[in-house]
Design a protein around this nucleic acid. Structure first.
Length: 634
RNA sequence: GCUGGAGUAGCUCAACUGGUAGAGCAGGUCACUCGUAAUGAUCAGGUAGUGGGUUCGACUCCCAUCUCCAGCUCCA
């Protein structure tokens, strides 16, 4: 009997009898043998002890393999669970998967974990790692497993096992600790080189708020210490850039207990940035053939019944005027639909692109509010495109082009996701299929890769979501394109076709920023509060060296202001160094110092944020420089 | 909404086991008139998120409520 094993480089190794992954590694070399964590046999991840019994393709996983990360984290989760069972009595294990940035493990225990506990658990974990305990795989039938779990009283595991189809399952044992688990795992606990417990939190069993609240411990692990440190540094960086903190420090916006949760108040500096963003949007929409419109804040409740929002229990606010019930708009589409309906439309009128900076209100649950990123009242750069079915593709292409140019303006990369029909939805199956196909076809034609997010569409149609990546690698959902056959039918929209018959238009809902408020919050973190000139609330600050230059400084500020530049003056009775420091702390792009020399020569000594002194330039040159940078959105 | 934590001057924070609150920065005033990241002096500022309760007495204990933070669930 002979077994041939094909390695990723297509080379083939032959063995006389079944071999384990580890043995294959040993036959290649001692270095690899030592580094081997696990293997991938015919696309399936397995332990290093997995016995290969027939011809197979094998990839050996070492700490350098990207596929190892998940493995390392999952095994670290097991070590966490082992440590917790050592330190706490009466613990029930629930579930402990690896996740995008690390891992967690959910426990059911009577007390809640304190920060001190976290330190204790971490210490115990380090002990377990130092012990280099092997992970051993035990296989058995489902019935045997069930008996074992019942004997141990593992109620959560029993519930999970009941949902499993396979007849054979596995357990993993490391020392005294045994856990029902699919695996695979590292060879032994000593292979864990860099981990950290991050936080504890409550989490419902299976995410269901009616089920018991468990204690979740979050942590992360990496193959190498420096990778862990880089990750922890990134977390610190995210804290440093937190838009809620910067918003307060830079005096951009505030929230108030008296006003209410989730309702943002923009201060002058924050509003300056908002207006700059709105100006960009308005100009860009008009240039792309959209027509700006304005709808009312509240609409009679019957409108929301026709649209389906009411029956769908969309989280809206309602109010009454003389016994007539009104709904405060959570979306802008209805007024746009009424504009379409205001007169008979011909196929010649389509596509009709209506755009509005529409402020909407949604009754978000209190626990989800989060700075500017999750509000109860926010403004969307919302547009609705009414078009012929055969215009759908080109319209979607146009929107994607818009998204692309906007993302590159801010330096965001992005990826696409198509979300399909959710459980709570309206419309016929055919319409959903047609709409979903249209979205896929467009992206296919454009050659753009995308993921499918099943069941995550809007209630009236499927959507393309755009996830952007910011300066420190986090992703955010902002832009979305939704294809809708339902609302045109519900509101009985029609156009006169070439043959004189009445036909139904298709509707696209789309946003580019999504919520201006959220986008602003993301920008604050993206730029770490140091906005480019075109967005900065104060684009240049003029600082006279001493009182004698104040009149000249006022003239400089005034001339720049006349040119439409956001300029201010700091002629306070403070030392120059002090005022430079203040300007730097406020992250103002340019500081213009004027002393005796500048006043005599009609010049300004320019200092750029983060870059320092640029030397003196003529006032006229400064005006042109700033005007051009602002116009080019630099 | 749920679980846990928090709420002291504009901001950041402090005050032993209950005995009616302090500092730095910011702000006002004065002096200095200053050349690229903190000049000095001085003054003012809070009754402790809000409402109840316990107590001779509460910032400190209890209850309710509001808001914030972390997570769950949900979402632009």
């Amino acid at each position: 009997m002979s077994i041939s094993i094909t390695l990723p480089d297509k080379s083939v190794l032959n063995f006389d009898q079944p071999v384990t992954v580890q043995e294959v590694a040993e036959s290649i070399g001692p270095g690899l043998a030592k580094a081997t964590l696990a293997g991938i046999v015919n696309d399936k991840k397995v332990d290093n002890g997995f016995l290969i019994e027939r011809d197979a393709a094998l990839k050996i996983l070492t700490p350098d393999s990207p596929e190892s990360l998940e493995l390392i984290r999952h095994s670290t989760a097991h070590v966490l669970a082992q440590a917790v069972t050592r330190l706490f009595s009466k613990v029930q294990l629930a579930i402990g998967p690896s996740i995008k940035e690390g891992f967690y493990y959910d426990f059911d225990l009577e007390t809640t974990f304190s920060p001190d506990d976290l330190v204790r658990i971490e210490k115990e974990m380090n002990k377990i790692i130092a012990e280099k305990i092997p992970f051993q795989r035990l296989e058995m039938t489902k019935a045997e497993a069930m008996a074992l779990l019942k004997e141990r009283g593992d109620t959560y595991k029993i519930e999970m096992l009941e949902g499993i189809e396979d007849d054979h399952v596995s357990f993993y044992q490391q020392g005294e600790f045994l856990d029902w688990c699919r695996g695979p795992h590292l060879p032994d606990t000593g292979k864990i080189k860099a981990f950290k417990l991050l936080k504890t939190a409550g989490a419902y069993w299976r995410g269901d708020e009616k089920r018991p609240m468990l204690q979740r411990v979050y942590g992360t692990a990496f193959p190498k210490k420096d990778e862990l440190e880089a990750y922890l540094h990134r977390l610190e960086e995210a804290v440093r850039r937190d838009h809620r903190k910067l918003g307060k420090e830079l005096d951009l916006f505030s929230f108030s207990d008296e006003v209410g949760a989730g309702l943002v108040i923009y201060h002058p500096k924050g509003a300056a940035i908002r207006y700059a963003l709105e100006d960009y949007l308005k100009k860009e929409h008009v240039a792309r053939g959209y027509q700006p419109v304005i709808g009312p804040q509240i609409l009679k409740v019957d409108m929301w019944k026709t649209s389906g929002h009411y029956q769908m229990k969309y989280p809206m606010y309602f109010t009454k005027i003389e016994e007539q019930e009104y709904g405060i708009k959570p979306m802008n589409c209805l007024a746009h639909i009424m504009i379409y309906k205001a007169k008979t439309r011909s196929y010649r009128d389509l596509p009709l692109r209506l755009f509005e900076l529409g402020t909407v209100h949604r009754h978000e649950k209190s626990g989800v509010l989060h700075g500017l990123l999750r509000l109860r009242g926010f403004t969307q750069d919302d547009a609705h495109i009414f078009c012929l079915p055969d215009q759908l593709l080109s319209e979607i292409k146009g929107i994607i082009d818009f998204v692309d140019s906007t993302m590159s303006l801010f330096g965001f990369t992005y990826e696409l996701e198509i979300s399909t029909r959710p459980e709570k939805s309206i419309g016929s199956d055919e319409d959903w299929e047609q709409a979903t196909a249209a979205l896929k076809e467009t992206l296919d034609q454009l050659g753009l890769p995308y993921d499918i997010n099943e069941g995550d569409g809007a209630f009236y149609g499927p959507k393309i979501d755009i996830k952007l990546h910011d300066a420190i690698g986090r992703s955010w959902q902002c832009a979305t394109i939704q294809c809708d056959f339902s609302l045109p039918a519900r509101f009985d929209l029609s156009y006169v076709a070439t043959d004189g018959s009445l036909k139904r238009p298709v509707m696209l809902h789309r946003v580019i920023f999504g919520s201006l408020d959220r986008f602003f919050g993301i920008l604050i973190e993206h730029y770490a509060g140091a906005f480019p000139v075109w967005l900065a609330p104060t684009q240049v600050r003029i600082i006279p060296v001493s009182e004698q230059q104040t009149p000249y400084a006022e003239r400089v500020a005034d001339q720049l202001r006349q040119a439409g530049i956001r300029v201010d003056l700091d002629s306070r009775n403070e030392k120059l160094g002090y005022r430079i420091r203040e300007g730097a702390k406020e992250k103002i792009p340019y500081l213009g110092v004027v002393g005796e020399r500048e006043a005599a020569n009609n010049q300004v000594a320019l200092r750029k944020h983060k870059e320092g002194d640029l030397g003196s330039i003529d006032l006229e040159a400064l005006r042109e420089k700033l005007t051009s940078e602002i116009a080019n959105r630099q």
